[in-house]
Design a protein around this nucleic acid. Structure first.
Lengths: 198, 198
DNA sequence: AAACTAATAGACACTGTGTAGTATAATAAA
DNA sequence: TTTATTATACTACACAGTGTCTATTAGTTT
């Protein structure tokens, strides 16, 4: 999910992978509050002290994992952006949802399971940024809608709807294909994206 | 925020109030992970053992507080429902937002501050229930929309948008009046509430 | 081969947890 | 007011988890 440029010691990669897997593993069995460094080390078959060589504590570990998640998604964004320019929104959305579906084990636990808001918070922030910048670009071209909602409210509304729907989708074991959901989302989104006032 | 019917010992009410205030107090200063029973008891000027007479542990305490929150909001729902029948959605929404604004100290910390998803999760569930039941009632009367989105996706979308927007509103120190936001929300909501297919 | 660096192992002081038992208050009922 | 009840305070205990240290072993790179 993340690869450093100046070749990292394979032992480090191995250890981080073990910790990550152990953490996701444990989250499927017990609540976050009950997860300790002790248990993670035990499950990962590493020494407890080794954990502290990589992360300050468990919250720090989760933050770094969230960083990796965001980086992976941003990479998809840039990748799609490089390829095509037509029907961008729906295509990038479909790609991201496919990525989530492919790593559903990871996302189901870290994004959809309750009591771990860091990951969905990060995604939400990313979505706000994306929608905001896109809204700015469209700003000049559009004027005089029938209804006008303050721009920030519309951004809050759309971002929350997007992320929330994806979370529900994961929690319900992805009952729709990524592409179908992407279509529905862009359909719903377009209904209110043109109602903003600056 | 909650009053038991069979007169509760005033000492109990006092202690629970002290604990609640201490908790909200601490959350404004330090992260949830760093909050301990020790600190809560110290801040509440009660003995640490007394805490365990009321709650099993901190997660249990938060669940009970979330129960109180939901009960208070449901009470507002029922109250409004008893009064009027015209333009129900916007009126109930305005009332709830006013209630949140009045207790903004409480909601800002427990709902909008990061890393405590229990409270927003509960609200989300409530919103899903409300929208679902309302959608069922409208079901027969409406047919043949231009676009048709699966009902559950529309419910996920709307619920997430509502709760998320309220959370953003709180995080940004409520830059709009409750009634104005209620109007914008029902406006945005109506744009896509009639696009569902059963 | 030697030089680095990661991971291991054991130990330490410290903080927090949950639960005893007993004593002392405040409250409710007579 | 007196009596019975019950919440809270206080002290103590066994235990788990934290974060850090030092020394040692094992794997990686050049």
């Amino acid at each position: 999910m993340s690869t450093k440029s100046p070749r990292t010691d394979p032992r480090v990669l191995r250890t981080r992978q073990l910790i990550r897997n152990a953490f996701i593993d444990l989250l499927q069995e017990i609540d976050l509050e009950k997860i300790t460094v002790n248990r993670i080390a035990e499950r990962a078959t590493i020494n407890r002290v080794t954990f502290y060589l990589h992360y300050r504590d468990i919250p720090d570990m989760m933050e770094k994992m969230a960083d990796d998640m965001i980086n992976a998604i941003v990479a998809i964004f840039e990748d799609v952006q490089r390829q095509s320019r037509v029907d961008f929104e729906r295509f990038v959305l479909g790609s991201v949802l496919e990525h989530i579906a492919e790593n559903s084990n990871f996302y189901k636990v870290l994004l959809a399971s309750k009591r771990i808001p860091i990951f969905s918070d990060r995604l939400m922030q990313l979505m706000v940024d994306v929608i905001s910048s896109r809204a700015e670009n469209r700003d000049a071209s559009l004027s005089g809608s029938v209804v006008s909602v303050p721009k920030d409210i519309a951004i809050w509304y759309g971002s929350s709807a997007f992320i929330g729907t994806i979370v529900f989708w994961l929690r319900n074991d992805m009952p729709y294909t990524p592409n179908f959901l992407a279509n529905q989302l862009s359909l719903l989104f377009r209904l209110h994206q043109n109602t903003t006032s600056s």
